[in-house]
Simulated assay, not measured.
Amino acid sequence: MTVKEIREALGAKFICGEEFQDREVHSACGADMMSDVLAFMKEKSVLLTGLCNPQVIRTAEMMDVVCIVFVRGKMPDETMIEMAKEREIVLLSTGHRMFTACGILYEKGLRGGAPCQ
């Protein structure tokens, strides 16, 4: 799935990174705790979160996240947007709640990692 397909499926708006809309995304993770992202995220993923602080961008960079989708209409501040631009991370915002957004992407064929043991 591409970033463009994710944006369309979620009715999301680009915050930055529109020039990278053709990048491939291989899996997804929905989390507000960055420790969960570090533990369970795969590379070339999309992160769905309602957390709006610079740690989200730093964590995404460490985990090779292609795109961050802010759920519930959340919007990052200018500092976060600049950080994402420097790291070439796409930022999107959708009005969907996290559960719904994850379900939409799952329905479209995007999967997460293996079940937790």
Rank of each mutant, 00 (worst) to 15 (best):
M1E: 04
M1H: 14
M1L: 10
E5I: 04
I6V: 13
R7C: 11
E8R: 06
A9Q: 13
A9Y: 13
L10H: 10
F14W: 06
F14C: 03
F14Y: 15
F14E: 10
C16Y: 09
C16N: 12
G17R: 08
G17W: 13
G17M: 12
G17H: 13
F20R: 15
D22I: 00
R23K: 14
R23D: 03
E24F: 00
V25G: 00
H26W: 07
S27F: 01
A28S: 08
A28Q: 11
C29V: 14
C29E: 02
G30L: 10
A31Y: 12
A31E: 15
D32C: 05
M33Q: 11
M34T: 12
M34R: 00
D36P: 01
D36R: 13
V37Q: 04
A39L: 12
A39S: 15
F40R: 12
M41R: 07
K42T: 12
E43C: 08
E43P: 14
V46I: 14
V46K: 09
L47T: 08
L47W: 10
L48K: 08
G50T: 08
C52Y: 01
C52D: 09
C52G: 01
N53D: 15
N53G: 09
P54R: 07
Q55A: 12
V56F: 13
I57S: 02
I57D: 04
R58C: 04
T59Y: 00
T59N: 01
A60H: 04
E61A: 04
E61L: 03
E61M: 05
M62A: 15
M62E: 15
M63S: 02
M63L: 06
D64H: 15
V65D: 03
C67L: 09
I68H: 06
V69E: 05
F70T: 02
V71K: 09
V71Q: 02
R72A: 13
M75P: 02
M75C: 04
M75F: 09
P76E: 06
P76I: 03
P76A: 07
D77Q: 08
D77L: 02
M80E: 15
I81V: 15
I81C: 05
E82I: 01
E82W: 05
A84G: 03
A84Y: 06
K85L: 01
E86Y: 13
E86T: 09
E86D: 15
R87S: 08
E88N: 11
L91W: 05
L92R: 09
L92H: 04
S93E: 00
S93L: 00
T94N: 05
G95C: 02
M98H: 07
F99S: 04
F99G: 05
T100P: 00
A101F: 02
I104F: 07
Y106I: 05
K108L: 10
G109H: 09
L110M: 12
R111T: 12
R111E: 11
G112R: 00
G112K: 00
G112L: 00
G113A: 10
P115E: 11
P115R: 08
C116V: 14
